[in-house]
Protein backbone atom coordinates (compact mmCIF):
# COMPACT_ATOMS: atom_id res chain seq x y z
CA UNK A 1 0.00 0.00 0.00
CA UNK A 2 1.20 3.47 -0.86
CA UNK A 3 2.36 5.48 2.12
CA UNK A 4 3.94 8.82 2.84
CA UNK A 5 7.19 8.43 4.81
CA UNK A 6 7.41 10.04 8.24
CA UNK A 7 10.97 10.95 9.26
CA UNK A 8 12.06 11.45 12.83
CA UNK A 9 14.47 14.30 13.58
CA UNK A 10 15.17 14.43 17.26
CA UNK A 11 11.97 15.34 19.00
CA UNK A 12 10.27 16.39 15.78
CA UNK A 13 8.60 14.47 13.00
CA UNK A 14 9.05 15.55 9.40
CA UNK A 15 6.49 14.68 6.75
CA UNK A 16 7.26 15.67 3.17
CA UNK A 17 4.47 15.17 0.71
CA UNK A 18 6.07 14.58 -2.68
CA UNK A 19 3.34 12.78 -4.56
CA UNK A 20 -0.13 13.83 -5.58
CA UNK A 21 -2.32 13.48 -2.54
CA UNK A 22 -5.36 11.35 -3.09
CA UNK A 23 -7.99 10.71 -0.51
CA UNK A 24 -6.88 7.29 0.71
CA UNK A 25 -3.28 8.47 0.98
CA UNK A 26 -4.35 11.37 3.17
CA UNK A 27 -6.36 9.10 5.43
CA UNK A 28 -3.38 6.71 5.73
CA UNK A 29 -1.10 9.60 6.60
CA UNK A 30 -3.46 10.76 9.30
CA UNK A 31 -3.46 7.31 10.86
CA UNK A 32 0.29 6.75 10.55
CA UNK A 33 1.11 10.15 11.96
CA UNK A 34 -1.03 9.82 15.08
CA UNK A 35 0.44 6.38 15.57
CA UNK A 36 4.00 7.70 15.31
CA UNK A 37 3.34 10.65 17.61
CA UNK A 38 2.05 8.40 20.33
CA UNK A 39 4.93 5.90 19.89
CA UNK A 40 7.75 8.45 19.80
CA UNK A 41 6.08 11.13 21.94
CA UNK A 42 7.22 13.75 19.42
CA UNK A 43 6.96 17.39 20.48
CA UNK A 44 6.46 18.85 17.03
CA UNK A 45 5.35 17.91 13.53
CA UNK A 46 6.50 19.62 10.34
CA UNK A 47 4.45 19.00 7.23
CA UNK A 48 6.21 20.12 4.06
CA UNK A 49 3.80 20.58 1.18
CA UNK A 50 6.11 22.52 -1.14
CA UNK A 51 5.86 19.81 -3.80
CA UNK A 52 2.09 19.82 -3.68
CA UNK A 53 0.75 21.90 -6.55
CA UNK A 54 -2.88 20.88 -6.50
CA UNK A 55 -5.40 20.62 -3.70
CA UNK A 56 -9.10 20.00 -3.42
CA UNK A 57 -11.38 20.73 -0.51
CA UNK A 58 -10.90 17.25 0.93
CA UNK A 59 -7.11 17.51 1.06
CA UNK A 60 -7.44 21.02 2.47
CA UNK A 61 -9.65 19.70 5.23
CA UNK A 62 -7.24 16.82 5.86
CA UNK A 63 -4.36 19.24 6.35
CA UNK A 64 -6.45 21.13 8.89
CA UNK A 65 -7.54 17.99 10.70
CA UNK A 66 -4.05 16.44 10.77
CA UNK A 67 -2.71 19.61 12.28
CA UNK A 68 -5.59 19.74 14.75
CA UNK A 69 -5.23 16.20 15.96
CA UNK A 70 -1.46 16.34 16.37
CA UNK A 71 -1.96 19.37 18.55
CA UNK A 72 -4.37 17.42 20.70
CA UNK A 73 -1.65 14.80 21.06
CA UNK A 74 0.64 17.55 22.35
CA UNK A 75 2.73 18.02 19.24
CA UNK A 76 2.99 21.50 17.73
CA UNK A 77 2.26 21.35 14.01
CA UNK A 78 3.58 23.57 11.25
CA UNK A 79 2.53 23.45 7.62
CA UNK A 80 5.40 24.76 5.52
CA UNK A 81 6.15 25.64 1.91
CA UNK A 82 2.66 26.14 0.60
CA UNK A 83 2.72 27.17 -3.06
CA UNK A 84 0.94 30.39 -4.11
CA UNK A 85 -1.49 28.49 -6.33
CA UNK A 86 -2.40 26.18 -3.46
CA UNK A 87 -2.89 29.10 -1.08
CA UNK A 88 -5.13 30.88 -3.58
CA UNK A 89 -7.15 27.72 -4.20
CA UNK A 90 -7.68 27.12 -0.49
CA UNK A 91 -8.80 30.71 0.04
CA UNK A 92 -11.17 30.52 -2.92
CA UNK A 93 -12.58 27.29 -1.49
CA UNK A 94 -13.19 29.15 1.75
CA UNK A 95 -10.70 26.97 3.64
CA UNK A 96 -8.73 29.55 5.57
CA UNK A 97 -7.32 26.90 7.94
CA UNK A 98 -7.70 28.87 11.17
CA UNK A 99 -5.48 27.53 13.87
CA UNK A 100 -2.96 25.99 11.49
CA UNK A 101 0.54 27.43 11.89
CA UNK A 102 2.40 28.09 8.68
CA UNK A 103 5.93 28.98 7.61
CA UNK A 104 7.64 29.75 4.34
CA UNK A 105 10.04 26.81 4.33
CA UNK A 106 11.27 23.90 6.42
CA UNK A 107 14.10 25.88 7.95
CA UNK A 108 11.89 28.71 9.17
CA UNK A 109 9.29 26.21 10.34
CA UNK A 110 11.89 24.35 12.34
CA UNK A 111 13.07 27.59 13.98
CA UNK A 112 9.55 28.48 15.03
CA UNK A 113 8.88 24.97 16.28
CA UNK A 114 12.04 24.98 18.42
CA UNK A 115 11.07 28.31 19.87
CA UNK A 116 7.58 27.17 20.73
CA UNK A 117 8.63 23.85 22.18
CA UNK A 118 11.29 25.59 24.30
CA UNK A 119 8.67 27.99 25.56
CA UNK A 120 6.49 25.24 26.91
Amino acid sequence: MERIPILQMGEFLLVTIQVDMHDQLALNLQEDLTDRISRTSARGVLIDISALDMVDSFIGRMIASISGLSRIMDAETMVVGMQPAVAITLVELGLTLPGVSTALNVERGMQVLRKRVAGR
Binding site: V79, V80, M82, P84, A103
Partner: peptide, 12 residues
Protein backbone atom coordinates in the same frame (compact mmCIF):
# COMPACT_ATOMS: atom_id res chain seq x y z
CA UNK B 1 -9.03 39.63 3.15
CA UNK B 2 -8.44 36.82 0.66
CA UNK B 3 -4.96 38.06 -0.15
CA UNK B 4 -4.06 38.39 3.51
CA UNK B 5 -5.36 34.88 4.23
CA UNK B 6 -3.42 33.40 1.31
CA UNK B 7 -0.25 35.11 2.52
CA UNK B 8 -0.79 33.75 6.01
CA UNK B 9 -1.35 30.25 4.62
CA UNK B 10 2.02 30.43 2.94
CA UNK B 11 3.63 31.26 6.23
CA UNK B 12 4.28 34.97 5.86
Amino acid sequence: LKTVTAIRLMGA
